[in-house]
Amino acid sequence: MSVLVFADAPHGKLAKSASETVYYGKKIADKLSSTVTVVTYGNIDQATLAALGNYGASKVLVNPEVTDENDQTLTALCVEAAAAESATVIIFSFDPTGKMLAPRISAKLEAGLVAGAIAIPEMEGDTFVVRKNVFSGKAFADCAIHTDIKLISLMPNSVKPVQTDAQASVENFTPEITTGKLRFKELKAISTEGVPLTEAETVVSAGRGLKGPDNWGIVEDLAHELGAATACSRPVADIGWRPHHEHVGQTGIAIRPNLYIAAGISGAIQHLAGVNGSKVIVVINTDPEAPFFKAADYGVIGDAFEVLPRLTEAIKKFKASN
C-alpha cells in the first residue's frame, strides 16, 4: 500500500508543483501509515529527483524513455506505477497535465477523482472526504470518494510545503507501455521573464481603469519589484491590451496567490470568482463605490496612475531597509 504522486516534468524540467503534491501526499501517507512514491518521466538529474525526499517522498520512479506529455503514454505509466506500488491513493496537480491525466486514469481504474482539492482529506473509514472549490471559487464542496483507489488533483498554492533534509531513493521505471498516438511538435515559449501566473505567490493585476495598453509600464514595474506575475480583467484581454493568458476570472484562469493587487478593476462577480481564493487582496480604485472594495483586505481610494508608482517606490524603500 502506498500513496503515488505523479510529478509532471514538461520539457525536461520537474514542475514546481511537485513540492506541493509530494508534501500533500506525505500528509495523507502519514494518516494511512504508508509511504509516498513519486512517478515521473524524462531526463532529470538524480539529485533533483532525490531532493523530492525533502518534501516527503521515499521513492522516485522515473521513466527516462518518455519525453513528452503524451496523455495515453503517461496514463499507462501511472497505471503501471500504481500497480507496482499497490497504490491506494494517487495525487496530481490541478494543472494542464493533471487535467489531462487524472480523469483518464479515473475512468481506466474506475477510481473516484476529486479535481481541484484545496485541503487534506478527512478520512472516515474507507471513505475520503475532500474539499474543493465549486462555483468558480464562490463556494466549497466536500466530496466523498467511495472507491478503493482514490484520486485527487491538488489546486496549486493550497498547501505550504515544509522541507526536511531527507532524500528519496531514485529508480528507473521502464515498464512495457504502448506509446500514445498524439505527436508533440514544439513549445512556443511565451516571453514571461517572470513567474507563471498560476504558480505566482504575488500577482499584480489591472483592468480597464488603466485606459490603454501603453500604460502597463507602471503595473509591470510594481510586479517586477515584488517578483510578481501580472494579470488582467477580461475586457482588457478581449480588446487586446494584454495577452489572453493573463485573463483571470470565472472564464479565465483561477488563481490563489498570497497577495493579489488589483488596480483599475471594478470587481465584477465574474472577476472575483477567479481571485477570491487569494489570501490577501489589495484594491486600488478611484471609485469608492467599486464593488471590489467589499472583497478587499486593504483598499486605496485613488488614481492608479499615482498610487502604483508610489507603491513601487515604497516597496523599493522597504527592500533596501530590510
Binding site: 520539457h11 524540467k13 494542464p96 498516438k181 498524439l182 511538435k185 513549445l187 512556443k188 504558480e199 493568458h245
Partner: peptide, 12 residues
Amino acid sequence: RDLPAGTEVIEG
C-alpha cells in the same frame, strides 16, 4: 494549448 512554460503544438 497553453502551458505555464509556453504554447504547446500537438498533432494527431
